[in-house]
Simulated assay, not measured.
Amino acid sequence: MSMPEPVHKRILLKFSGEALLGDSDFGISSEVLSKLARQVCEVMDIGVEVAIVVGGGNIFRGEGLAGGGMDRVTGDHMGMLATVINALAFQDAIERAGRKVRVMSAIRINQVCEEYIRRRAIRHLEKGRVVVFAAGTGNPFFTTDSAASLRAIEIDADLMLKATKVDGVYTADPMRDPTATRYDRVSYDEVLDQRLKVMDQTAIVLCRDHKVPLRVYDMTADGDLMKIVTGDTSVGTLVDGTNE
């Protein structure tokens, strides 16, 4: 049986920290992590280069503590460290699934992982390694969504994927509004104008200005990542310059 041909050769996957919770209220679900690692390895088996950005909300949110009186910059630095923990967990899970991984941090933590250098990251991808980008952009006040858009641009990704627990972008929250309908395709400007909850506005503007297509999909659905990289446009919602 011949292997399917990918239409996207280099992708960047964005996982929120909350995506790793599973049924727990805190921490990392080994079951969820193993499932995501298996999906990554499956698309790599057909020649797709994979980079990952992961948040830290399952462990710590700097913005939340700042609301309680903590210095925002300190809180954000703590949040960056939480993303490093998640990145190392991804590294372990993907390596156990049979692929080589490099964690690259935007803040220096060299005894734990590499520091982020763009050319080195691209070289890792070209050599068939998964690259997990940790610590966001390395700057306070910027989300890991913005970091994902930035890294996707820097590594020249064909597609950025926002992994969620719903099957795309809706006109309203489908958990609260039963009349909400899913978009098959929506433009960057529509996302911004209608304040659709896809990614934060800075992340969307970066994607728009640098023409990085974004697809929002349900990471819990087995096989959907493979369908996307092999050209199935019925999965999730595509955000791009539709009206250009």
Rank of each mutant, 00 (worst) to 15 (best):
E154I: 11
V169E: 01
D158Q: 12
K162L: 10
M160L: 14
P140W: 02
I153D: 03
L161I: 13
R151D: 03
M175A: 14
E154R: 05
A172Q: 06
D167L: 11
D156M: 10
A157G: 12
D177F: 12
Y183Q: 03
L161V: 07
M175W: 00
S146H: 15
T171W: 04
I153V: 15
T164E: 08
Y183L: 04
V186A: 06
L159V: 08
A163P: 00
A157D: 11
A180E: 05
E154L: 15
Y183M: 02
K165W: 11
K162C: 04
I153N: 01
A172M: 01
K165T: 14
M175S: 12
D145M: 05
M160D: 04
V186T: 09
S187M: 13
T179D: 14
V186G: 02
R176K: 15
P140I: 01
A148K: 09
A152Y: 01
T171Y: 06
T171E: 10
E154W: 10
D177C: 04
I155L: 14
V186D: 07
K162Y: 00
S187Q: 11
A157E: 07
E154G: 09
A148V: 10
R151V: 05
S146G: 11
D167F: 11
R176P: 00
D184Y: 05
S149C: 14
M175K: 11
R182S: 09
A147V: 12
A152S: 15
R151P: 05
N139C: 00
S149G: 12
I153A: 03
V166R: 11
L159Q: 11
Y183R: 02
D158A: 13
D184K: 13
K162E: 00
S149M: 14
R182T: 08
K162V: 13
L159S: 05
F142C: 07
R182Q: 08
F142L: 15
V169K: 02
D167Y: 10
R176C: 05
Y183G: 06
S187E: 13
Y170F: 15
D158M: 11
S146T: 15
D173W: 03
M160N: 01
T164N: 05
